[in-house]
Amino acid sequence: MASRSDSSSEILSGLKDDILWLMILIYSFKVRARLEGLGQWSREHMSIEFMLLDSAVRDIVMRLTALDDDSKNNRSFQTLLSALNRENLLEQKRSKALKEKVKKYRDAANKLKVEHRNQYISHVNTDASVLPRVIDRPVRFQEVASLAVNLMDDFAGKTLRYHFKMGSNESINLRDALQAE
């Protein structure tokens, strides 16, 4: 019998939180990447902003690749699909469709792993440069992020809502905000 922490409902809930934080980070990155006030910045301020943007990209890539982790006891799309199948909560047709979508996500995430994480964040060769590349060689994470959000919707069986709450009365609808970018 599955323990509470590896039940499909626990994994689904955790993944929804993971996607929320991913979207908050992408939104924050996009707002900062506007470089508002650039003309008034010192070189130091500009350098720090670029470093923070580069750090945000690293976090985005790590979050996206974590959603592809197929290690036992790690929360990912694969572990959710396995839990749903183990608990007999999916009809065969839906299970097959989700499996195909998970594979599509895994393929896209693997490309991101190879092109960025494995050459720039972890498993870095001794001769590799790890200078900030947010301006001259931006990382194309948008497709993988979009696949992750849509796959989460597919697992939930509905379009999920994600809000960035900054106070009791302030909230940004992240889907709308990111689609407008």
Rank of each mutant, 00 (worst) to 15 (best):
M51W: 04
L84R: 08
P138I: 08
D176E: 13
K103E: 15
I121F: 08
V144I: 10
S55W: 06
H45M: 10
D127L: 14
L84A: 05
W21L: 13
R86F: 12
N150L: 11
R94K: 15
F50D: 03
K101M: 10
P138Y: 03
S146I: 09
I48C: 04
S71H: 11
G167N: 01
L151D: 03
R32A: 14
S13R: 14
A109D: 03
L80Q: 00
I19N: 02
L38E: 14
Q142F: 08
D107E: 15
A2L: 13
L15M: 10
F141G: 04
I26K: 04
R43Y: 05
A148D: 01
D6G: 06
A66L: 08
E49V: 14
N85Y: 01
L174G: 03
Q40M: 09
L15R: 02
I48V: 13
L12G: 12
N73E: 14
I26E: 11
L25D: 09
D70P: 02
G39V: 02
W41K: 10
D6Q: 14
N150V: 07
S71W: 02
E87R: 06
M152Q: 09
N85Q: 14
R94A: 11
L64M: 07
A83V: 10
V114Q: 13
L98H: 02
A83N: 06
D54R: 01
T65N: 07
V130A: 05
K113L: 10
L81N: 06
L147W: 01
L38A: 14
Y162C: 02
R34Y: 01
R75K: 11
K30T: 13
I172E: 05
L178T: 05
L53P: 04
S8D: 08
Q142G: 08
S9V: 15
Q92Y: 03
I48Q: 12
D17E: 12
L178Q: 06
A97Q: 10
A108M: 04
G157N: 05
K30E: 15
S71D: 09
L22M: 05
L53R: 01
E36M: 11
A66P: 02
Q179S: 13
Y27H: 14
V61D: 04
K103C: 06
V134G: 04
M62I: 15
N150T: 09
A66N: 12
N118I: 02
S76H: 02
M62V: 14
G37S: 00
L112K: 00
S7T: 13
I19A: 03
A145Y: 04
N88E: 14
I26R: 07
E181I: 14
V149W: 08
